[in-house]
């Protein structure tokens, strides 16, 4: 074990950690927001909406995230030269940094997994509650906002910790496209020092610490929400 490289690379590793956290936070928040319409489409939507949303979730959950990321970044990139005049007119799109592709891929993925959970949660809210709200004269939107979504959300809250940790555990894949996230920087260390165990172990330790922090934070959040448990 040799660690003399660590001080030199600490600033870069810290920057990489920030990028990793950015990917995690943005993709979880945006992915969750996207999961709600996806789940609603499967629960309440018409035939087409139900099928499309279902197919989307099957695709996301049935293929490796690595391949989804490759398709988004390299697959789409390989189409740019086919667009006439892209180099002149679409330079902003072409030059979009790889980090945006990573965030998009991770958001789409989180949405697919979370929609499946939200679907179950929406279905498990007793119909009587919704009917009562309707009978009070609430509009469908208001029912969703005041009754349906809050009770479904409370149901998924305990599973959210696991989902967020699952998402955290996927973030090292960002290094497979040119992004300098924590793993990307560690990869650079491996390249510069020809050492493989130490940088990987370092990243592993940081991920363990992050997992611990997330578990603690969500535990606190759950305790803040009063829940009546009927067993």
């Amino acid at each position: 074990m040799r660690w003399e490289w660590l001080p030199d690379y600490l600033p870069a590793l810290a920057e990489g950690l920030l990028i990793t956290l950015e990917v995690l936070v943005v993709s979880v928040v945006a992915g969750f927001a996207l999961a709600i319409p996806l789940a609603l489409a499967q629960v309440k939507g018409g035939y087409l909406a139900r099928k499309l949303a279902g197919a989307y979730c099957s695709y996301i959950r049935g293929t490796p995230l690595l391949m989804q990321l490759y398709l988004l970044y390299y697959g789409i990139g390989s189409l740019f030269p086919l667009i006439p005049g892209a180099r002149e007119n679409l330079m902003w799109l072409i030059r979009l940094d790889a980090i945006y592709y990573v965030i998009l891929a991770f958001t789409l993925s989180f949405a697919g997994y979370e929609a499946e959970i939200m679907r179950g949660a929406f279905l498990s809210v007793p119909g009587g509650e919704l009917e009562a709200a309707e009978a009070m004269g609430m509009s469908p939107g208001l029912v969703l906002r005041r009754i349906w979504f809050p009770s479904a959300f409370l149901k998924v809250l305990p599973t959210l910790t696991g989902e967020v940790i699952g998402q955290l555990k996927s973030t090292p894949l960002a290094f497979t496209v040119p992004v300098q996230d924590l793993m990307g920087v560690a990869h650079k260390v491996m390249q510069d020092t020809y050492r493989i165990y130490e940088p990987l172990l370092f990243v592993a330790l940081v991920y363990l610490a992050l997992t611990y922090v997330i578990v603690q934070a969500f535990g606190r959040l759950e305790r803040l929400v009063p829940q009546r448990r009927s067993v």
Partner: peptide, 18 residues
């Protein structure tokens, strides 16, 4: 400096205009 896993990926991103 943008670093890639493989040379064909570097080539692909030059062709893409990135």
């Amino acid at each position: 400096i943008k670093t890639y896993e493989t040379q064909d990926q570097v080539n692909a991103d030059l062709a893409a205009g990135r």
